[in-house]
Design a protein around this nucleic acid. Sequence first.
DNA 1: GCCGTTTTCGGCCCGACTGTTTTCAGTCG
Length: 568
Amino acid sequence: MNKKTIIRTFEKIALYMELLGENHFKVAAFRKAASVLELDPRSLSEMDDILTLKGIGKGTGAVITDLMENGTSEVLKELEDKVPKGLIPLLNIPGLGGKKIAKLREALNIDSVESLQAACEKQEVSKVPGFGKKTEENLLREIEILAQRSGKTPIWQVAKIADAVEAELQLIDEIQKYQVAGSFRRREEESSDVDWIVVTEQPKAVKEKILAALPIEKIIAAGDAKLSISLDTEHPIDADFRFVTEDQFATALHHFTGSAAHNVRMRQLAKSRKQKISEYGVEDKSGQVQTFSSEKEFFAHFDLPFIPPSIRKDGTELDRADEIAQLVTPEQIRSDLHMHTTWSDGGYSVEEMVEACRAKGYSHMVITDHSHYLKVANGLTPERLLKQIEEIRAVNEKYDDIEVFCGTEMDILPDGRLDFDDEILKQLDFVIASIHSSFNQPQEQIMERLYAACKNPYVHMIAHPTGRIIGQREGYNPDIDQLITWAGEYGKILEVNASPYRLDLRTEHLIQAKNAGVLIAINTDAHATEQLDIMPIGVEYAQKAWLPAEQVINTWPLETFIEKVIRR
DNA sequence: GCCGTTTTCGGCCCGACTGTTTTCAGTCG
C-alpha cells in the first residue's frame, strides 16, 4: 500500500458520492482528506500519525485502515457496485453536477453520455421535473462539443489568445483598465479558461462591445457583473470578464486570480477575525465594506506580505509568508544569458540584441548562437564562431553601460561527444550545452550525453534540461535526480527556460534543484528582440519552486558574475 | 464527513447566472 493509492481512493469515493448527489460537504471531506495526504511531504511509512492528521476523521480513517489491512476499500467497492462507471464522464458536461445526474438516473435510468444523448433526442429529459426544453437543447450541444474539445490549453497558446483579446479591450473607451487574472496570471502550465477583471462604470456598453469585437462560439452567461463566452479561436477556450468599479478592482483581482484553495484560506483567515472577503471588498461585523487600492494593501490588511500570484496555490503559502521576501522577482533580473542572433537562427544582429538588452537595463548579457551540428539552425562552425567572437568583442567596446559576453549554445551530439573541442571552448566566456537531437534514445544514453557535458570543465550551464514543449512533447526524459546530483558535483548551472513553450526545469524538479543548492539561471532563449520580454514569465514560473534570488545567477551583479561564473 | 480559545451541534468561502420556477436550486469559478 502506498500513499498515492489512498489518495486516489479518496478521490474516487468523492467522485462516486458526487454522482449519487450526496451532501457536498461530505464529498468535500473526502477531497480534503486526499489533499491533506497529498500535501504532506512524508511517505506513508513515515506517517505514524496518519489517523490523527487534521482532516482525517472516523470515516476517512476507517478507509485508510481498510486499505492498509486488506489492500482494498469496502466503502469504494460498495460505491462502485452502486454507480455505473459510464456516469463519470457526465460530470464533464457543463451544467451537469451530481444532483442533476442523480435525478436523471432516477427518472430515466441514464447511465452514460450515450444514454443521455438518446434521452435528449427522444425529448424525455425535458419532462423530468427541474429540467426544461432549454436544458435539453443545451445538453445535446454540450455533448457534441465535449466530443471535439480536449482538455486544457497550454500557457503559450493562452498567451497568444490573451494578447489578441487585450488588443480589442484596449480599443473600448468605456474600459478604464483591465487585467488578466486566473490560472494564466498564476503562470500555470495549462489553463481551462482565461479571466479578465475589467474596470468600468458602464458594464452594459462594455459587454456589448466585447461581444461585437471577439470571435464567439457560444455565450455561456451574460449578466451585468459578468460575461462568460467560448472563444472561437484557433484553439477554442472559454473567457470570463468581470465588470467592477475602480475601488473593487484589488479585491476582484485577488478573488479571480485564485487559486480556489488560496481564496478559501484567505476567507477562513478573515472569518477568524469576524470579517468576510468577497470580490467586492472586506466586510466587517457591522456590514461596513472596506476596499483597497492594491492587492498589496489587501494582503497588508491581513498582516501578510504581497503574495505573488504564481505561489497562490494550496493555501500553505500563508504559512510561509516570512519566506516571501527572499523570493526571486522579475525586477531583480540583471542579465539574460541565452539568446540567438542572425549568425544562427535568430532574427536580429548582435548589435540589435545588445541595444534591446540595454533598453531592459541589464548590466550584462551573453550571445549564445547554435553550434554547427544543428544545421537546420545554421549553427556556427569553429571558424565562424571565432569570427563571431571578434564581432562581439568589437560591439562590446562600443558600450560602457553593458557587458556583452561571448558564448555558445553547443549541441551535445547523439553519440555523447560535444560539438566543439576544448581548444575552441576555452576562448568563450560562457558555454551552454544542450540536447537538440535523438530525443528517443533510452534514458541511459541520454544520461551519458548529459554526463559528458557535466564533466567538461568548460561547460557552464545545461539548457532546457528536459527538452519538453508544454502540451506537445514530453522531451527526452532524463533522470533529473542524477542530473541535479552531477550539477552539484561539477558546479554546473541548470536553466529555467523562460519561453512559455518550454518552462523547464519544471516546478517539481526545480524544487529538488533548489534543495540541492544547485545554481539556476533563468533565460529567454530569445530568437528576436521582442522575445526578451518573456523574462518575467520565467521568473514568475520559478517562484513556484520558492526559489530565492541569491540562487538565481541572473540576479547577480556583473562583478559577482565575472568572479563566480566566468573566472571560476 | 470533519471540526471546536464562544460550540459535541451546526456550521463548512462567497457570489453570479441560468433555467426552472412562481421564490429558488444547481452549477460554476
